[in-house]
Design a protein around this nucleic acid. Structure first.
Length: 264
RNA sequence: UCCCAUCUCAU
């Protein structure tokens, strides 16, 4: 039974959802009851795949079999709905968890904040943020990054700066994600110099750029015809031991394609 | 109050 749980979870960890579900079914046929971690991981995997139907099915099944969903389970299901844009359903789950005696944690709130941010529902977002404070939960880096991303993506750069200030005042150090969010939105607004400045600030603050940073910067330069700069970063990235991924290649190819350099 | 799973960024 422990072996089955481990096998299913190992498959999920490797992204082998199909294999995991085969083992999961086999496990049940042999009358082993999957544990809550296994159920939660499966819900997560289906959620990531955008497969709400199966995520919900697993959730129902676990309840039928007497496994009691915990915060992690609800968070997984919540995120699955949030990412598909099912705001009402997600909020329903949030209320359901309260009824089930399952207290929302900061992850729960972060997921909901992210959901409203993506949807551009700022009134709801503010309401949730207040709820966090009322419940005397201390926002963490993820919370601030989520808020920053929500506001800066929607053109509210002034509000985003307020958040950043709040974050720092609260003693929460901006991390790589924070910088990535800031430089991406700054670049999209056409402030290329400022984006480059943020990139330098980040390094000076002792943060190593990651693949997301490089991809964002390369794309910013590429969109603005600064091919040299994009190429320089491309090489800098490799010498830093950071390998380009599909996102990075797309950024670089776009850069060349939009400036009549198809050969490259 | 053993161990394992959940939240935010780039094309």
């Amino acid at each position: 039974e422990m072996t089955y749980n481990s096998l299913v979870n190992a498959c999920l960890y490797q992204g082998l959802l199909d294999m995991a579900s085969v083992l999961f079914e086999e496990m049940k046929k042999e009358n082993h009851l999957p544990n809550i971690v296994t159920y939660t991981n499966l819900i997560n995997a289906y959620g990531k795949a955008g497969d709400l139907r199966n995520a919900m099915y697993i959730f129902k099944e676990m309840k039928d079999k007497g496994r009691v969903p915990n915060v992690w389970t609800y968070n997984a299901l919540l995120k699955a709905h949030a990412r598909r844009g099912f705001l009402e359903e997600a909020y329903g789950l949030y209320e359901e968890m309260e009824c089930a005696g399952c207290l929302p944690d900061l992850c729960t709130y972060n997921i909901i904040l992210d959901m409203y941010g993506r949807a551009g529902c700022f009134d709801e977002l503010e309401k949730i943020y207040q709820e966090i404070l009322i419940n005397r939960i201390t926002p963490n880096q993820v919370t601030y990054n989520t808020l920053l991303d929500a506001y800066s993506k929607n053109g509210h750069s002034g509000k985003a700066l307020d958040i950043l200030e709040k974050m720092i005042k609260a003693g929460c150090r901006p991390d790589v994600w924070t910088y990535n969010i800031l430089l991406t939105s700054t670049g999209k607004e056409g402030n290329i110099i400022e984006a480059g400045q943020l990139y330098n600030d980040m390094k000076e603050a002792g943060h190593l750029p990651n693949i997301v940073t490089y991809t964002a910067m390369i794309s910013i330069y590429g969109r603005n015809g600064l091919i040299q700069e994009a190429e320089t970063l491309w090489m800098e990235m490799q010498s830093a031991g950071c390998l380009p991924n599909l996102f990075t290649y797309c950024g670089m190819i776009d850069c060349y394609a939009h400036h009549g350099m198809c050969k490259e």
